[in-house]
Design a binder for these strands. Structure first.
Lengths: 238, 238
DNA sequence: AGGGAATATGTACTTTTTACACATTGATTT
DNA sequence: AAATCAATGTGTAAAAAGTACATATTCCCT
């Protein structure tokens, strides 16, 4: 089939699985790339780091790592996130796989992209490395590997999801005002929204819980604070 | 890191890429699984074949194959489809990657699922093997590997897409009546639709071209025939 | 010629979306 | 203490989209 075909057995997991496949298979590296979104100063940002490859010096890349032999894809993504940010249990969703033959300069590496949404101001957030950088998404023109494509694909998926389900809340602190929420939607959708219509729409979704508290430390009339209603108790639509 | 870690270099593609990564990497097999949907007798069907693994004897599986060293994911998916059905240029979309450690009994195999939509009555359709079977989706209770999960995930995505974009047309012959189209939507959405409202909605989308032809060989008043409007000339929404 | 079976079509009602303006609150300044 | 500033909180009318529903028409078949 091909000169570069590798001869080896697949890694086994259980004794029962010892009925190996003995044919020659091509084996490749599989990585996970994390598109870690955050929100700050009214801007959607993504966590990047300088690429460690000579080919991509001066370019940033997403945070990724190879998937271990006994590691599920989602576990790998959670591990990377934990290693880089110290955070557990972050909202995360698979975007898709990328596997063009030339996507990695050092050889054949398939990658599966996950996006995560987290609150940059989260108490537990502790970046593993000072080189990690929250970069505003709309200022990113280029990234290492095919990471710009991965970012754009993830962003498109996030935009789409944000119109259908309450995902954006993960980018905000636990307590937030309607103004903050609206500014976030405006940042994601790239257009201004009417305040009254926005409030009406969000209220009808039943996603919000009125905390009976007020904003503090704002130099104007403070707004009410809300939190996200737990998903289990959402009013169902359809 | 792990006892089963393999020591080998990644396959190289270009001379420039000869700056190899020398670390020990875990390499796994990567496959593509095709969820090939068709529509016949008012039922959504999927193309399956008997599993060739002892573990899954008596079970059917989706059509898949390992990705070659110099093959993109989408190319692999197109190749599998061509090999199995003889068809080229079929509508196809990536669903997502599946990579649980125990998903394949013979070892670690990541897979990327693609769904395709084709017309079972297509002139060029020529199944490669008499064991291939068009199985009604709603009658499938179990499949080999994690293929039931892959099927369910693909079906959910297809349902979702069918509400937003004109994908279902790929399941029909080039010329079709509004009744055929409505029956298809009903089969996918699993509910009956009102004929007048359906027609109004579809007309407003601007997806249809009136062919000024009539159905033939029906034992009742024949309906008008339509074809799908080319995507490039769709009226834009939003 | 009559009966059967499915096509083609419009209107009233409800729900959702959009556009739009003013009084209120609390902090800050004078 | 009063005036100013900046943002909050709220309702209504119009337009658009979605839903429910019935009758006359066409072609095939016998």
């Amino acid at each position: 089939m091909n000169a570069e075909l590798k001869t080896q057995t697949l890694p086994m997991k259980t004794a029962a699985a010892e009925k190996k496949i003995h044919k020659d298979y091509f084996h490749a590296a599989v990585s996970v790339d994390c598109v870690i979104f955050g929100y700050e100063d009214r801007k959607l940002k993504v966590l990047v780091m300088p690429s460690d490859l000579e080919e991509f010096k001066n370019l940033f890349s997403l945070l990724g790592d190879l998937v271990g032999p006994h590691e599920d894809l989602q576990s790998a993504s959670q591990r990377i996130l934990k290693e880089r940010t110290g955070l557990d249990g972050v909202y995360m969703e698979q975007v898709q796989a990328f596997g063009d033959t030339d996507r990695h300069p050092s050889g054949r590496v398939f990658t599966v992209a996950y996006y995560s949404l987290l609150n940059i101001k989260h108490d537990g957030l502790q970046l593993s490395n000072p080189l990690l950088k929250w970069m505003p998404v709309y200022e990113i023109k280029q990234l290492a590997f095919d990471h710009k494509l991965i970012l754009d694909t993830s962003l498109a998926k996030l935009r789409h999801m944000s119109m259908e389900t309450p995902v954006l809340f993960h980018l905000l602190p636990e307590k937030f005002s309607l103004r903050e929420l609206q500014e976030l939607y405006e940042a994601i959708q790239g257009q201004e929204l009417d305040r009254r219509n926005f409030r009406k729409k969000i209220s009808n979704k039943g996603w919000l819980v009125d905390l009976k508290e007020m904003e503090k430390d704002v130099s104007h009339r403070p707004g009410k604070l809300y939190r996200l209603q737990f998903a289990e108790t959402f009013p169902q639509k359809h």
